[in-house]
């Protein structure tokens, strides 16, 4: 669907040039919800704006449905852009137009006739749940409602792709949730491919099927969301994942005697995915290694419908047995364990 080849973007400054994107290669399949996450300054914004050439790439190709956008002239590019809907962090609605007229805007540009416009506008407002707000002005709407108008507007010309530029970053968590639900709905109902950028891992977790992690202008990791969550490899990815998973680990556990004093045992965190959740993991440990396992914390979550759990247990007893138990855990598939130490730097094993 979308192929990005060696995308580079350099902003020339007076003193030195800034390399925002340093050669990005990505493929987005049809019907995917593809998320790009990265810390601020990583080049996310440049990336998504290069996709519809709002920013002209310094080098590289953007191929949408077999058409290389970078090779088009101005007029062809305008036509191609009608296939790429876009929504924005600040909604960017026209304040001088009513909700209905905002949605009609792209249709006017595509030279649709009045009747077509009216039909399409009411259909879209129905879809985003704002049929009763057709004659309101954007300033009379809440942020979430404004973004719904933005979504309706972006869908007006039946695009193949919807680009989301931090679409939920200025919304509160509850509204974010409802907007993400709407996007997922659209993806399923209309089969539109969605590419979004965000700095919030929650957004990725909630709707994306695939994710790429951007750091300093480079994609450092890319894969299915479930894999990135359970087996993050690069530090930046781990940080993003921990923001969601570790946020739930109570602080006071770090002052346990097993953390401060390794002779007393080990505090370990076990992450398990899918089927492994049903294995009697803990009782096997106790049974096979004659050690005590004290469950301190447990949590289960779902990513793309797959259960994903975190368990913190304290192992006490014979130290050698504990070590072999940990080694044994390393070997089981779909389970990732971390030994929590007092330096807070967790050693991670796969």
């Amino acid at each position: 669907m979308i192929e990005i080849k060696n995308l580079k973007k350099v902003y020339s400054g007076e003193e030195k040039d800034v390399e925002a994107l340093k050669g990005i290669d990505l493929k987005v399949e049809h019907g995917e919800i593809f998320g790009l996450i990265g810390p601020s300054g990583a080049g996310k914004s440049s990336f998504i704006r290069c996709l519809n050439l709002l920013e002209e790439p310094t080098a590289g190709q953007i191929i949408v449905d077999g058409q290389d956008l970078t090779a088009l002239n101005t007029k062809e590019l305008r036509e191609a852009r009608k296939e790429l809907g876009m929504i924005f962090q600040n909604f960017n609605l026209l304040n001088s137009r009513t909700v209905a007229d905002n949605v009609a805007f792209p249709l006017e540009i595509a030279d649709a006739n009045k009747e077509e416009i009216n039909d399409k506008v009411s259909e879209l407002l129905e879809l985003v749940g704002l049929a009763d707000k057709a004659d309101s002005y954007p300033s009379q709407l809440s942020g979430g409602q404004q973004q719904r108008v933005g979504i309706a507007r972006a869908l007006a010309n039946d695009p193949k792709v919807l680009l989301c530029d931090e679409a939920t970053s200025s919304l509160d968590p509850e509204t974010t949730h409802s907007i993400l639900d709407l996007l997922r709905d659209i993806n399923e109902k209309l089969g539109i491919t969605i590419v979004l950028i965000t700095h919030e891992m929650e957004v990725i977790k909630e709707i994306c099927t695939k994710v790429a992690v951007l750091e300093a202008g480079k994609v450092v990791e890319v894969g299915d969301v479930i894999d990135i969550f359970t087996k993050p490899e690069k530090n930046v990815t781990k940080k993003f994942v921990q923001r969601i998973i570790n946020a739930n680990v109570p602080e006071e556990l770090l002052s346990r005697v097993t953390v401060e004093n390794p002779e007393h045992g080990r505090l370990i965190k076990i992450c398990f995915v899918g089927d492994s959740a049903s294995e009697p993991l803990v009782s096997d440990l106790v049974h096979n290694f004659q050690i005590d396992a004290n469950i301190l914390y447990g949590n289960i979550d779902k990513i793309q419908g797959i259960p994903f759990g975190t368990l913190i247990i304290e192992l006490t007893g014979d130290l050698d047995q504990i070590e072999s138990a940990i080694d044994c855990l390393h070997e089981s598939d779909n389970v990732r364990i971390e030994v929590i130490t007092d330096e807070e730097s967790v050693s991670i094993h796969y």
Partner: peptide, 20 residues
Amino acid sequence: GVIEAAQAMGATPWEIITKV
């Protein structure tokens, strides 16, 4: 941002002037 949104929708410069 509003001008950019219009550009992203494929508006011509004339349309951006008269409609935005």
